[in-house]
Amino acid sequence: MAEEWKDKVIQEKLGGKKDWTDEERAELCRQLDEELESHIDAMGKTRYKGGWTEENWKEQMAEHPLFAPYIQEEGATQAEAPINPLSEGLAQLKFDPDHNTPEGNYRSAIKDCEKAVELKTDYLKAVVRAVDCATKLNSWDEVFHWCDRGLRLDPTNQKLKTDRLTALKEKKLLERNARKMARDENKKATEEQNLINAIKNSGVQLGSTVLKGSSSISLSDLEPCHPAAQGSRVHFNESGELVWPVMLLYPEHHETDIIQEFPESDHIIDHLEVIFGKEAAPAPWDTEHKYQVNNLHVFFEDKEKTKLCKVDPNQTLQQVLRDPRYHVLGGTPGFIILVEGSRFMKDFVSKYSI
């Protein structure tokens, strides 16, 4: 096959002439170089994508000027064209898409170094190469192994000494970070358990379960369901009291407000003053300016949602949440706000027993 390709080149480039002069040989080499460069330029300057696979390697080789002469021409039968050793070898390659990665290449290189030192135990160059690859993989124990092996061959090798010292520092840093992460996770778990215990011992009822004396509560039970309250889960403040996200519902206008941090010691009226006090701008949906702090009523639904329970706005959130009729749903206490004497309030309240 190689002779056929050679004859083909001679025929195309030199018209079949075989007694080449030095000038003709140089000209042939120049032409072949130009053709190869032209082919590479024609492939474009974009980043190479889509490597050779088991399915396309033959087509890829057929387009390459170096390999094209070895590929069986289209239409030729297997009997007409002998199997080229290069083609046969490529066909037997095992394609592994995960191998051709930086990590896979470094790991493969270390295996090659292992084989090399098996054949030549004092092959220091292979040892140094393994150290470099293990360093790239951040595999510090392997770096120690290869550095120690190399220093037994060359105790004065400064590179191996430096690499080993660097690996020792990096491993200590890794271990320190792991210990810190473990401490942080333990601290977080302790804080979360303290939070759960505080809620359980307070007697707050979550959903339909009475938490006091129960061990069934979990943090997932305390995650707010309303999108506006996400990230505002109940927590302790600096004074050690529970702080809840609280939802105010205005059914007349199908609107809601989320108070992301409502300490249990705060009174309901304190927050109503901020939202509906004299200094507060009316809500965009309150076009009639009916929602004034002095003519608002606060309610909550009982567990069965059949009874509307009136709330004294001068009570603290803690007092309301300890009411045996109250149940915290979705980790977010909620209250219904209605305007006193309005037609909507009369209609709304008539649907419940009070």
Results as ranks from 00 to 15, higher is better:
Cys225Asn: 01
Arg179Trp: 06
Thr77Asn: 10
Val143Pro: 08
Asp257Met: 06
Met181Leu: 13
His253Tyr: 10
Pro102Val: 02
Leu86Asn: 07
Thr46Cys: 03
Leu90Cys: 13
Glu279Met: 11
Arg129Gly: 13
Val131Ala: 01
Ile354Asp: 05
Ser38Pro: 00
Tyr291Trp: 13
Thr53Gly: 15
Asn294Ala: 06
Ala91Pro: 01
Arg183Ser: 02
Ala79Ile: 06
His235Tyr: 05
Ser87Glu: 00
Lys351Ile: 05
Leu124Trp: 07
Cys29Arg: 11
Pro284Gln: 12
Ser214Cys: 13
His267Leu: 13
Thr135Asn: 04
Asp141Thr: 12
Ile83Cys: 12
Asn177Met: 10
His226Arg: 04
Leu206Gly: 02
Gly16Glu: 04
Trp244Ile: 07
Val243His: 06
Asp221Gly: 09
Gly341Leu: 08
His235Arg: 12
Leu168His: 02
Val339Lys: 09
Glu27Leu: 13
Ser202Tyr: 07
Lys18Gly: 02
Met247Cys: 11
Tyr326Gly: 07
Ile40Lys: 14
Glu264Leu: 09
Val339Glu: 05
Leu338Cys: 05
Leu119Tyr: 03
Pro224Glu: 07
Glu74Trp: 02
Glu191Gly: 08
Lys18Ser: 01
Phe276Asp: 11
Ala189Glu: 07
Glu340Leu: 11
Lys111Val: 04
Glu34Ala: 13
Glu74Met: 01
Ala134Ser: 12
His145Glu: 14
Asn197Pro: 06
Gln292Phe: 14
Ile269Lys: 10
Glu3Asn: 13
Leu28Thr: 14
Glu63Ile: 03
Glu55Tyr: 07
Asn177Glu: 11
Leu321Cys: 14
Leu272His: 09
His327Leu: 12
Gln92Ser: 14
Glu12Met: 09
Lys120Leu: 03
Gly213Phe: 08
Asp141Trp: 08
Asp323Pro: 00
Thr162Ala: 10
Asn314His: 14
Val311Ser: 00
Pro324Tyr: 03
Ser208Met: 14
Thr162Tyr: 06
Gly277Lys: 10
Met181Cys: 01
